[in-house]
């Protein structure tokens, strides 16, 4: 029996009158790569953001490594987590955004070292050494002292991945990591993600890269209208979709 990284049950979320998640049930084992595909507005990014509390749940629950997200149980009653407790949980969850979100006033090295030094109180020297190893892994050793504005989109996203990895997370969330990139820069980012998956990192990837989902993914989820329509082995789902909406979507993107 493999260990469980994420257990979600009946997750719902609305923005005003708009229901974006209408009951997500999901189990993600440790060390797996789960890709979530689906049309825009299907709630896939929102679900990802619920995992590290960039959004709060309206209903249901999510457990990360058995720990409830956003709430705590005390004396048989449910309480909301305070900011420090939420931040503590986020330390173990890395996130990569569509728009990179590097800190523009810091060099590449400062971007990577900021959180480990400030949040985990590690020694700057140790973090810098680790940052340089990470930069080598993402192929950007020569950009240590560059500012984000002088990097291409693909380079910025690789720095963003290194920045997330510097916190030594046990789970990595990718929110459309290649959607803002020029087509010729997509490959370099996917290569880094592929290496990360080969290294055994648990990853949840919201993506439109069907090829990546097929080759690297262990599990594929197709979402539409705020719910999971179909899921399973990526090769099976992609070659033989069972649901009519999955068929329609795949016909358009492949």
């Amino acid at each position: 029996m493999t260990e469980v990284m994420i257990e979600a049950q009946g997750v719902t979320k609305s923005f005003g009158d708009l229901e974006v998640l209408n009951g997500i049930d999901l189990t993600i084992p440790k060390g797996s790569v789960t890709c979530i595909i689906g049309p825009s507005g299907s709630g896939k990014s929102t679900f990802l953001r619920c995992i590290n509390q960039l959004e709060t749940l309206d209903g249901g629950y999510i457990l990360v490594e058995g720990q409830p997200v956003g709430v705590k149980v005390r004396k048989g009653r449910l309480h909301a987590q305070n900011n420090a407790e939420a931040a503590k949980m986020r330390e173990n969850i890395g996130m990569v955004f569509q728009s990179f979100n590097l800190f523009p006033h810091m060099t590449v090295l400062e971007n990577i070292c900021e959180a480990p030094v400030r949040v985990k109180k590690e020694s700057r020297k140790a973090v810098q050494d680790r940052a340089k190893i990470l930069l080598e892994r993402v192929g950007l050793s020569e950009k240590v002292h560059a500012y984000p504005a002088s990097l291409s989109g693909g380079q910025q996203q690789r720095v963003a991945i290194a920045r997330a990895l510097a916190m030594e997370p046990r789970l990595m969330l990718f929110d459309e990591p290649t959607s803002a990139l020029d087509p010729e820069l997509v490959g370099e980012v996917l290569d880094v993600m592929r290496k990360l998956a080969d290294g055994g990192m648990t990853m949840i990837v919201v993506t439109h890269e069907i090829g990546f989902a097929r080759e690297v993914g262990d599990h594929l989820i197709f979402m539409d209208g705020g719910g999971i329509v179909e899921q399973g082995d990526p090769r099976t789902v992609l070659s033989d979709p069972q649901h009519v909406r999955t068929k329609q979507f795949l016909a358009k993107v492949i």
Binding site: A87, I93, N101, F103, E114, R118, V119, A164
Partner: peptide, 20 residues
Amino acid sequence: GQTEAATALGMRRFAILSRV
């Protein structure tokens, strides 16, 4: 996105304000 990225890294509110 800057606040979100800092939040996702586990930074606390004061650090996000003063550093980012």
